[in-house]
């Protein structure tokens, strides 16, 4: 996906550029088009999570007290800590791009490593949170959950679905960052052609953006 978006040469190049990169119709590097494509792709991700937030809002309005109760059962300090982890990973991602823009490949790689590390920390903490709930017998399809009130069931079903989808995106994002790191090491992503890293950065920030909303909506409505 990102490969095609960033690396596919446009067939006619940048027809509008004052300084033609060649004569008409010769492939060229068009970072603006690539970022545009990436943003359009991000909109689909946004709407995908957006649909889940609509479902969340619908059930919140149907079962306000059960959702408050459910929210109370989640661990706020852990959630807040995870928020800090993800925000920091967003910072390191942004710094990785900024460093490469300045030609500092070394720092850029370090920052990418840090981003992946934070992604790992986030996932491990999330796994512990899920683990604690599963140990209490609260997971989709469990007898304990089935015995609960319908509003509670709706809360936990939404909780597992949305945090699960988000965690999946964290894992995919981390994979993409590792991939762009390899390309940077090969110099295929370099200060002159870094739109691939920019695009994966955009993806990573979107993952962060989703969590910025997930955190208060799940942890802080008790």
């Amino acid at each position: 996906m990102s490969d095609s978006l960033s690396a596919a040469p446009s067939a006619t190049g940048d027809a509008h550029a004052d300084d033609h990169h060649g004569h008409y119709g010769v492939p060229g590097y068009d970072p603006i088009a690539s970022r545009m494509g990436m943003w359009l792709f991000l909109f689909t991700e946004l709407l995908l999570f957006g649909a889940l937030f609509i479902a969340f809002a619908a059930y919140l309005s149907k079962y306000p007290t059960y959702f408050a109760e459910g929210s109370g059962s989640l661990n706020v300090p852990v959630g807040a800590f995870n928020t800090v982890v993800l925000l920091t990973s967003s910072l390191t991602m942004a710094l990785a791009i900024a460093a490469l823009q300045r030609g500092d490949k070394n720092l850029s790689i370090k920052m990418l490593n840090a981003t992946v590390l934070f992604a790992g920390v986030f996932c491990v903490i999330k796994a512990f949170e899920w683990g604690a709930k599963i140990e209490m017998g609260i997971y989709p399809g469990s007898a304990t959950l089935a015995a609960m009130d319908q509003g509670k069931q709706a809360f936990y079903n939404m909780y597992y679905t949305m945090t699960g989808f988000h965690a999946l995106h964290v894992i995919i994002g981390a994979g993409l960052i590792l991939w762009v790191k390899k390309r940077t090491l090969d110099d295929r992503v370099n200060p002159k052609r870094l739109v691939l890293m920019e695009n994966i950065g955009l993806y990573w920030h979107l993952v962060d953006l989703v969590w910025i909303f997930l955190f208060p909506l799940y942890y802080l409505i008790a």
């Binding site: 991700e45 399809g141 679905t161």
Partner: peptide
């Protein structure tokens, strides 16, 4: 994307028991 995630939610109900739309589980 909205319909994409919706269909995935139905599959999750069938295969994982996460009944977001299941009336018996408080769904709508």
């Amino acid at each position: 994307p909205v319909v994409g995630i919706t269909l995935i939610l139905v599959l999750m109900e069938r295969f994982l028991g996460i009944g977001i739309f299941n009336a018996a589980m408080g769904g709508d």
